[in-house]
Computed example of a mutant assay.
Amino acid sequence: MMRLAEETADDWWEVEALLDLCFAPGREALSSYRLREGVAPVAALCLLARDDDGTLAGAIRNWPVRIDTAHGRKWALLLGPVAVHPTHQGEGLGAALILRAVELAREGGWSRVLLVGDLPYYRRFGFARLKGVGMPPPTNPERILGLELREGAWQGVTGPVIRALP
Rank of each mutant, 00 (worst) to 15 (best):
P81Q: 14
V116F: 00
V157T: 12
A43E: 13
G109F: 14
R163V: 12
E7M: 10
F125V: 08
A24S: 15
R143E: 11
A101N: 09
I144Y: 00
E148H: 07
R27K: 12
E148R: 12
L99M: 11
E16W: 02
A57M: 12
A9D: 14
C46F: 02
R3T: 15
L18H: 00
T8Q: 15
G26N: 10
L115M: 11
P41V: 07
R112L: 08
P120T: 09
I67S: 04
L149R: 09
G159D: 00
D68A: 11
E103S: 13
E14I: 07
P64N: 00
R124Y: 04
L30R: 07
G54E: 07
H71N: 11
L104W: 10
Q155L: 09
R129C: 04
T55A: 14
G90P: 01
R36E: 06
A83D: 04
N62V: 07
W75K: 13
Y122M: 01
E37Y: 06
L47A: 09
N62S: 12
L78N: 04
Y122A: 01
G156T: 10
P166V: 15
E107I: 15
L99V: 09
R124E: 09
L99H: 07
A49L: 04
L119R: 05
P41C: 14
A96K: 10
T69K: 02
D68M: 04
I60D: 01
R129V: 10
W13K: 15
G146R: 01
V84C: 05
A9N: 13
H88A: 08
R163K: 14
A5Q: 10
I144H: 00
E148A: 14
G117P: 06
E142S: 11
L4V: 11
T139E: 02
D52T: 06
G72R: 03
R50I: 01
E148V: 07
L35N: 08
P141G: 09
Y121F: 06
L21S: 03
H71Q: 11
P136D: 05
L93T: 03
R3N: 11
R124K: 13
E142K: 12
R112K: 09
E6K: 02
W110V: 14
V161R: 00
E103M: 08
L56C: 13
A5L: 14
A70W: 01
G108K: 13
F127Y: 11
K74A: 07
Q155W: 00
A70V: 11
R61V: 02
E151T: 14
E7S: 06
K74R: 14
G72S: 05
V15C: 05
L97I: 06
R61K: 14
L114W: 00
A128H: 11
V39C: 08
L77T: 15
A40V: 07
M2P: 13
L19Q: 10
V15A: 10
V133F: 04
R129Q: 08
R143C: 04
R61M: 14
L104K: 11
E91Q: 10
L115C: 02
